[in-house]
Design a protein around this nucleic acid. Structure first.
Length: 631
DNA sequence: TTAGGGTTAG
């Protein structure tokens, strides 16, 4: 038999006719006796089954007609509480909620009702409803009992909480994050541990992917560690280059949190830098100053770092803030960016002096930065001197330091020295990454040591892949694991390996992953041998790399230089068909080929074609065309 | 918190 419960149209229940008590069609003649032992809110001794069997007089199938009788539910708190408890136990949470609501509305003695309510039965009902996926009913009950002054959290035992967690996880996993946040807001109001109900980074990531700053903010406000989530939200929006959303989250955090949080301040400043809006970082800084907020050194450092390209500003900030060693490192970076080798050296001397007095300790960051300063200034001897300084100070160079030192020599055209450092790096147990290898290859090519570049490349390719401690395949911060190489084909075992050091037989090999740039450098090393260049481009594809516009430009150049103008022009077309639109360099290369071969008409037609594609000619292109007059 | 690096036309 199907019965609709009173005015609550949502409460549709199905009852078996044989269990339906016809006596309830009129005012209940039977009321529960007042002496049965119902476990109360304050009681925790009775199990739910015991409690359930202890109220035999209440038949919940009476409920369908409760609203139809002229009977004040709240007049008998005992009966009312027992019935409500039993309805809850049967999973009829909406009916339960209706009774609770009527208690609240009637203004009756709610505390008396509460004292007689069986919390274990209600808990059972909640568990049952959660198992049936009726979270909305549960929320309705929580809201109702809260009005009665019952803490909703008390209705959740371990099982209930576990089911709630599972339901929340299901909601989030099915992409209904907004629904989860709605729920989290309600539950947070009832002091539920929101952090345990969902994977916060997963939820934040979802909001960020959807570019929904407000949803992310609403979620952050439901957890006790809101400041941590605000940081994550700001940073994640920064990674998406969505500064507007990051700023929205920052402003929301300022309003929500009682005091400014330095982690958040630092994060928003870092994010401004990440998004390329350093001026915004200054506005934020000035705004904080205007409000007389005391900033810590980390905020100052972030501000200096984001504005490192502006040496004047960075120095000004460094004057008003405390300095710790990281501040000096950032100042060195600012000097480096400004090309102020003199000032960098002055700072380097100052920090070394402070170190000798025990005020601070130079770290690997300081040394690596100063190596870069000297590299940029082509002062390779000074860069190598830093390596000695490190040894004296007992600071171990890491992958970045080694790469920087190698670059210092490579930049100065010192192939031998660069290779020697490379070997030292391997012996020290550091694995070079692709860029480091490319630096060496480029150094060889610049020095016209083409064969050497190829021999290096082949030897790296042939070296057995080894386990590297850590996950980062790029080799950053990774040490080569101490594998016994005697039984392995070591890099030096290959006949074409070029290192001549007496120690080279002990050099460990490393996982080498060529990049498009690697192949481009090698293509340049082929000179005018078009077929060799072409073969390298094919190899590039076979190892899963795609030629970029630089690869194509080199191919055009080589083809043209070998005298095949038609072929060069054909490549320009193939390049476009391959999905790489020719840029000004590709066109200029082709134009140069035509000009050299006195194909002036072709050169100008290419120039016209370039304009049709709305590619802006630059000085190099113009010079090539102007050189027509010299032909 | 902070540090590094590669390729094309001229």
């Amino acid at each position: 038999m199907r019965v609709i419960l009173g005015s609550s149209s949502s409460a549709i229940v199905t009852a078996q006719t044989d269990r339906y008590d016809r006596r309830t069609e009129s005012k209940p003649k039977h009321k529960p006796s007042s002496n049965h032992s119902v476990s109360k809110l304050s009681s925790s001794s009775s199990s739910s089954s015991t409690v359930s069997s202890s109220i035999p007089t209440v038949n919940t199938y009476q409920a369908p007609l409760l609203s139809a009788v002229p009977w004040d539910l709240t007049s008998d708190h005992r009966y009312c509480a027992d019935l409500a408890s039993k309805l809850a136990e049967d999973g009829r949470l909406q009916d339960f909620a209706m009774i609770v609501e009527s208690v609240v509305v009637s203004g009756g003695n709610a505390s008396k009702f509460v004292s007689m309510l069986c919390v274990e039965l209600v808990s059972c009902g909640i568990v049952r409803s959660l198992r049936e996926g009726r979270i909305e009913c549960v929320v309705e009950v929580l809201e109702k009992v809260d009005k009665l002054g019952v803490a909703p959290l008390k209705l959740f035992d371990g099982c209930g909480m576990k089911l709630l967690r599972n339901e929340c996880r299901r909601i989030v996993d099915s992409g209904e994050v907004e629904k989860f946040v709605d729920l989290a807001e309600v539950l947070a109001g009832f002091q539920f541990p929101i952090k345990e109900l969902g994977n916060s980074s997963h939820i934040v990531q979802f909001c960020v992917d959807k570019r929904d700053a407000n949803l992310a903010i609403r979620y952050a406000c439901t957890v006790p560690h809101a400041h941590v989530l605000f940081c994550i939200i700001i940073r994640e929006f920064g990674k998406k280059r969505d500064l507007m959303s990051a700023l929205t989250a920052y402003e929301a955090s300022r309003k929500y949190l009682s005091s400014p949080n330095m982690y958040i301040c630092r994060t928003i400043i870092d994010t401004c830098g990440m998004c390329g809006d350093y001026m915004k970082s200054r506005f934020i800084y000035e705004d904080l100053l205007c409000q007389n907020i005391t900033l810590n050194i980390y905020v100052f450092n972030s501000l200096m770092n984001v504005n490192a390209h502006d040496l004047k500003f960075t120095l000004e900030v460094s004057m008003v803030s405390w300095r710790i060693w990281t501040s000096y490192n950032i100042l060195l970076k600012a000097c480096c960016l400004a090309g102020r080798t003199d000032l960098a050296q002055e700072i380097y001397r100052e920090v070394k002096h402070l170190e000798s007095k025990g005020v601070l300790k130079l770290d690997v960051f300081t040394y690596s930065t100063i190596v870069k300063v000297f590299t940029d200034a082509k002062l390779w001897q000074m860069a190598l001197k830093v390596k000695e300084d490190m040894q004296s100070a007992d600071v171990t160079p890491n992958t970045i330091t080694w790469s920087s030192l190698i670059n210092a020599c490579a930049n100065a055209g010192l192939v031998e020295k660069a290779l020697h450092l490379f070997e030292e790096m391997l012996q020290a147990g550091y694995a070079p990454n692709s860029q480091c290898c490319n630096i060496l290859l480029q150094a060889c090519v610049e020095a016209c040591q083409y064969d050497r570049a190829f021999r290096l490349f082949w030897s790296w390719k042939q070296s057995p892949t080894q386990e590297i401690s850590g996950e980062d395949y790029d080799g950053n911060y990774n040490r080569i694991s101490s594998v016994d190489h005697k039984d392995k084909q070591c890099a030096t075992d290959t006949p074409k390996f070029v290192l001549n050091s007496p120690h080279s037989s002990f050099v460990k090999s490393f996982p080498f992953k060529p990049t498009t740039t690697t192949y481009n450098i090698l293509m340049k090393a082929c000179g005018t041998d078009y077929y060799r260049v072409k073969a390298l481009m094919d190899e590039m594809r076979t190892v899963g790399l795609s030629p970029n516009h630089i690869s194509w430009s080199i191919l055009i150049d080589t083809c043209g230089e070998s005298g095949n103008i038609k072929g060069a022009l054909q490549i320009l077309k193939i390049m476009r068909a391959d999905g790489v639109s020719p840029d000004v360099v590709a066109y200029t290369t082709a134009i140069k080929v035509c000009v050299k071969r006195k194909e002036l008409k072709l050169a100008f037609s290419l120039f016209e074609e370039m304009k049709q594609y709305q590619i802006q000619a630059n000085l190099v292109c113009a010079q090539d065309l102007l050189s027509v007059n010299d032909v």
